[in-house]
Design a protein around this nucleic acid. Sequence first.
DNA 1: TAAAATATTTAAGTATACTTAAAAATTAAT
DNA 2: ATTAATTTTTAAGTATACTTAAATATTTTA
Lengths: 218, 218
Amino acid sequence: MSVAIENFVKAIYNNDNHDIKNTKPGNIAKKLGISNAAATDMAKKLAAKDLLNYEKYQELQLTEKGTKMALNVVRKHRLWEAFLFKMFDMSLHDIHREAELLEHQTSDLLADKISSYLGHPKFDPHGDPIPNADGKITTEDTSISLSEAKEGKTYIISRLMSDDKEFFDFCAQNEIKYRNTLTVSKQFISNKMTQISIGSNTLVLNEDFTKIIYVDEN
Amino acid sequence: MSVAIENFVKAIYNNDNHDIKNTKPGNIAKKLGISNAAATDMAKKLAAKDLLNYEKYQELQLTEKGTKMALNVVRKHRLWEAFLFKMFDMSLHDIHREAELLEHQTSDLLADKISSYLGHPKFDPHGDPIPNADGKITTEDTSISLSEAKEGKTYIISRLMSDDKEFFDFCAQNEIKYRNTLTVSKQFISNKMTQISIGSNTLVLNEDFTKIIYVDEN
DNA sequence: TAAAATATTTAAGTATACTTAAAAATTAAT
DNA sequence: ATTAATTTTTAAGTATACTTAAATATTTTA
């Protein structure tokens, strides 16, 4: 299957799992940087290949076959991220960019070699779960976004759900890192801001950031 | 530039350097598994981009710009081979197949990271030289093919110039490996066969193999 | 050196993955 | 509940990288 198709099913999968669960063509188009028309076209094409269910004006739904393909690509993406992060001194943003390309040109054999070398990790450096060779995610997700965290409690950062360079630069400057500990000192409900202390820093984060920083109870 | 273009200039580069130096469209087409017509088309297109010089019915000649592009791709290919060979237990044939895909999706940044990790190797596991970051090959090639080697002399294997699985399987079974030592016991000139002793084996190789096994004097 | 074989080029056509522009349907706002 | 705004779809068109078939040029060989 082509890169375009792999990226399309991956975008649906990611949208379905994370975001506000909008998998209509326009939303997928926005993620992929293509026109709405192109997304509608592709949706019809993939429906004919039994990768997704398409009904006019409805959400796109991956079939079992489509989900399997998406998970295979996601697995390769996250394995590459884990591998490059371990081997080389590269930022989370950079490893994401490389993985975005390499994921489509990686045999199942090589993916297994990488997984094996890393000791079959269950999470990538963003904290996202890595599907196993059968395309199954075997970990439970108990984490919540920082925006939903409770005042006074201490948490461990479990995921940094972003591909944005500016966000990661901010993280790097403020000890916001996968597995680090933080305490929520205050939730400013009406302003949708969250005050945390992490290491020696006190930070007040707005919703843009607290929605993509995921944490687990300590 | 597209994968098709990168593969096209790479094929010209490789043909120009190794083989019987035939870079006419038909020969490139054969290497790439495309039709002659497609190769002629592409040649015209690349001439317009100043990647090669095209004159009807003549050999295709890479320009400086085209050569640079080819060397950049070749560098990435050989770095991936060296890296995968070091990291994972994979055959020469397998690492070639992976590198063939990964080479087009690798940033200069990542290539440099790989090179640095490996200590800036000058040769890949086939014995082919790895161009440096400036696209220069800094090693001299003093090796000759086994078909040209002298009776009675001892040599070191410097290159295994093939991507063929059967050839590498044969090599694996007979201690034919980069850097191993062999002695040419007899050249059967009229039959174009070469008898060698390597390790505990005596082998009589025909021209198909002696033309792709390169050796250096001891 | 002329005929036969081979290679290259031209021409016409295809599939993929897009585009823009307009029409149709849905969703949001008053 | 209409109207307005937004989305989705359809339609027509484009670039890339191929294909096959036929025409033309080159190379081989007898």
